[in-house]
C-alpha cells in the first residue's frame, strides 16, 4: 500500500537547489505584495511547519496526535524564556525551541509510543488541554498574559527599508523552507522507510530487524522538534507566548490542515496550511454585512465539514486518493 513504492524523487542536492530557488522567488516576490498578504504569508509558513510535524508523526509513523499545540507551546515558552532570563539573541532561540521541544517529545514519546489508536488520541488530547493550563499555573511563564516574544526589526541599515512584516515573513519562510527540505530528506531516508514499515505492519517490520518501539519514539522526537520550530514561528507572528495562543483549537486546526492537504505526504502540507489560513479571512470579507456570529462561526463549520467529508470520501487523504485513481487508469 504505502510501504513499497518505487520512487523517482529528486536527490538531496536537487532538493536543496529547488529550495534555494523557491527561497529566492519568495524573497524577491515579497517586495511586490501588500503588507497584509505578507503577514498572511508568515502565518502560512508557521502553520506549514506545524502541519509538517503532524504529517511526519501521523502520516508516516502512523501515530495520531491531537496535541501538537502542546509541543509548539513547549518550544515557544523555552524560546521566550531564553530571551527573558538569559538575554540570548533571537536567532539562537529558534534552535533552543527545536531542541527543547524534541527533548520533551522524546520523554512523552517513551510513554505515548506504547499507546495506539484512541488511547493515543485521548492521551494527546489531554496533553493539549493540560500544557496551557500548566503554563498558566507556573509564575515564571507570565500567567495569562504570557511572555513577549519580539523578533524586532531587520538588522543594521535595513531596519528602515525593510518593513517589520517583511522581516517576519522572511524569517518564517526561511524556517519553513529549511523544515520542509529536512522533512523530505528524512522521509526518503532509511528512517522514513522504517516509520512507514512500522505503520503498515508492526510485526512484519520487527521481523525485518526494525525496533518498532524505538522507531515510534524517534518519530515522536523528530516531530516534536518540528512542532517546536512551528511554535516559535507562530509566536513570532503573534509577538507573544501565552496559554491562550496554544488552545485545543490550534491543535485541531493544524490536524485539519494536515488531513485536508493529505496526511500521507509532505507535499500536501503547503495546501493544508494555505487552506487553514485563508478560509477564515475569506469569510470575514464575505460576511461583512452579515451578523458577527456568522463571521465567527461559519469558517469553523466549513473547515470541520471539509475535514469530515475528506475523511469520509478519502480516508487516506486527497493525494493518496489521487494516486490510487492514477494507478487504476
Amino acid at each position: 500500500m504505502l510501504v513499497v513504492r518505487s520512487s523517482h524523487k529528486p536527490s538531496a542536492t536537487k532538493r536543496t537547489i529547488l529550495a534555494l530557488i523557491v527561497g529566492i522567488i519568495l524573497f524577491v516576490g515579497s517586495n511586490f505584495i501588500d503588507e497584509y498578504r505578507i503577514f498572511q504569508g508568515a502565518q502560512v509558513a508557521a502553520y506549514l511547519v506545524g502541519i509538517v510535524s503532524i504529517v511526519l508523526l501521523t502520516g508516516y509513523s502512523g501515530q495520531i496526535t491531537l496535541g501538537q499545540g502542546a509541543f509548539m507551546a513547549v518550544g515557544s515558552y523555552s524560546a521566550a524564556l531564553a530571551v527573558q532570563e538569559f538575554g540570548l539573541p533571537i536567532w539562537i532561540t529558534f534552535f533552543i525551541a527545536v531542541l527543547a521541544a524534541a527533548l520533551f517529545g522524546a520523554i512523552i514519546g517513551i510513554s505515548a509510543g506504547r499507546l495506539s489508536g484512541p488511547y493515543l488520541a485521548g492521551a494527546t488530547l489531554a496533553f493539549a488541554v493540560g500544557i496551557p493550563a500548566l503554563a498558566n499555573a507556573i509564575p515564571i511563564l507570565g500567567g495569562e498574559q504570557g511572555l513577549s516574544f519580539d523578533i524586532g526589526y531587520a538588522p543594521g541599515k535595513y531596519a528602515d527599508t525593510v518593513s517589520p512584516y517583511k522581516w517576519l515573513f522572511w524569517i518564517c519562510a526561511l524556517c519553513a523552507i529549511i523544515a520542509v527540505v529536512i522533512a523530505v530528506n528524512i522521509t526518503s531516508s532509511g528512517l522514513g522507510r522504517q516509520w512507514r514499515a512500522v505503520r503498515a505492519h508492526e510485526t512484519a517490520a520487527a521481523l525485518c530487524g526494525i525496533n518498532p518501539a524505538r522507531s515510534k519514539v524517534m518519530a515522536f522526537t523528530v516531530s516534536s522538534g518540528f512542532a517546536g520550530l512551528a511554535g516559535v514561528s507562530f509566536s513570532a507572528t503573534v509577538g507573544l507566548v501565552s496559554p491562550s495562543g496554544f488552545t485545543l483549537a490550534l491543535s485541531f486546526l493544524l490536524l485539519t490542515g494536515a488531513i485536508l492537504g493529505g496526511i500521507s505526504h509532505i507535499s500536501g502540507a503547503l495546501g493544508g496550511a494555505i487552506i487553514v489560513v485563508i478560509i477564515p479571512t475569506v469569510f470575514e470579507s464575505w460576511t461583512e454585512e452579515a451578523s458577527l456570529g456568522v463571521a465567527t462561526y461559519l469558517p469553523g463549520i466549513i473547515v470541520s465539514a471539509l475535514l469530515l467529508l475528506s475523511i469520509a470520501l478519502a480516508p487516506e487523504g486527497p493525494s493518496e486518493a489521487l494516486h490510487k485513481l492514477r494507478r487504476k487508469h
Partner: peptide, 17 residues
C-alpha cells in the same frame, strides 16, 4: 492505517461542526 485514525478525526470534525 486508517481504521483507527479515521474515526477519531471524523469525530473531531463533527465536534467542530
Amino acid at each position: 492505517a486508517t481504521v483507527t485514525v479515521a474515526p477519531v478525526i471524523a469525530m473531531l470534525g463533527l465536534l467542530g461542526i
